[in-house]
């Protein structure tokens, strides 16, 4: 055989079998678990026709429940954003005794069932509870009222902002802040001009998760609210109520709205994030 006669052959035949199987399985799984239920709701709503759709979302109870969910969500985002950033700053930048213990506590809301959390708040803020009786003496009602629902939502959404901001803060280190400080910036100026812009994306992501969790929270809010129609019934509680009353159309309609809301927020988030990744300026 001559030298230039050597036949060129790939060393190994590339097999895509595993890749294809993997992709296919993921898609099937996704369809069964996520897309099918969404389609189910959508089909149910379409089957019932637009009339019922409009009727069921314009009922006073439905409107009230969505408004309530909106305000609870806004409050939870507002408070947990501030508190979450503070938590992250303390845990990343400060060192103190018992820090590891406290850091573990931040994740507690992830670990505890929302129903259990709601029950804890009943024990604490209920009419006979330790703090509840104190508030009661000033005629402030926490349980079966808005404050209790906000507190329950704050509890279940506590870790999101803090947990998203902490790694960003840790990665970004302390040098830029030291530089700002040496250049004559006050602590406050340093926070607004240097720290906050650098944790921006962690913060946005944390807020998105807080939003999604707040509008979807059921267990904890159910326990502390008592689910009183037109009073302490949030959107998820409203859906549950409609469902148990055999008013499926109403339940499906409200569900669809909630699902679309959460989904759009996530999609918007992802798009913004994509743009951030593409744009070199934020890299």
């Amino acid at each position: 055989m001559k030298d230039n006669d050597v036949c060129i052959r790939p060393i190994r035949k590339q097999s895509h079998f595993i890749e294809y199987t993997l992709t296919f399985s993921v898609i099937i799984w996704f369809i069964i678990l996520v897309m099918a239920p969404v389609y189910g709701i959508l089909r149910e709503v379409i089957r019932n026709g637009a009339g019922i759709f409009i009727d069921s979302i314009s009922s006073p109870a439905a409107i009230h429940s969505f408004k309530l969910t909106f305000w609870i969500t806004v409050t939870a985002i507002f408070i947990n954003t501030i508190f979450g950033v503070m938590l992250a700053l303390v845990f990343v930048k400060q060192d103190f005794r018992g820090k590891i213990f406290l850091e573990g506590l931040v994740d507690l809301p992830f670990a505890v069932s929302p129903v259990v959390a709601g029950f804890m708040f009943i024990m604490l803020f209920g009419p006979n509870g330790w703090l509840g009786s104190w508030f009661g003496s000033y005629n402030i009602k926490i349980i079966y009222a808005l404050p209790g629902m906000v507190i329950a939502t704050l509890f279940v959404t506590l870790p999101f902002v803090a947990r998203e901001v902490m790694p960003v803060l840790a990665e970004y280190g302390i040098e830029q802040e030291e530089a700002a400080y040496i250049l004559g910036a006050s602590k406050w100026q340093t926070f607004w001009k240097v720290t906050l812009p650098s944790i921006k994306w962690g913060l946005v992501y944390g807020i998105t998760l807080t939003f999604a969790r707040s509008i979807g929270e059921f267990g904890a809010v159910l326990v502390v609210s008592g689910s009183i129609i037109n009073k302490t019934q949030t959107a998820t509680l409203h859906i549950h109520q409609q469902f148990t009353d055999f008013n499926y159309a109403g339940a499906f309609t409200a569900s669809l709205i909630l699902a679309v809301l959460s989904f759009s927020i996530l999609i918007i988030m992802k798009c913004v994030y994509k743009r951030k990744e593409k744009g070199y300026r934020w890299a």
Partner: peptide, 28 residues
């Protein structure tokens, strides 16, 4: 450090990543 009015150049520059060159220089 603010009161000492010293200039400090960090080993890894510690530039403000979210600011342009111009904004970085203008910061102080």
């Amino acid at each position: 450090p603010r009161q000492r009015k010293v200039g400090f150049v960090f080993q890894h520059y510690a530039l403000f990543k979210h600011m342009t060159v111009e904004k970085n220089i203008a910061f102080g």
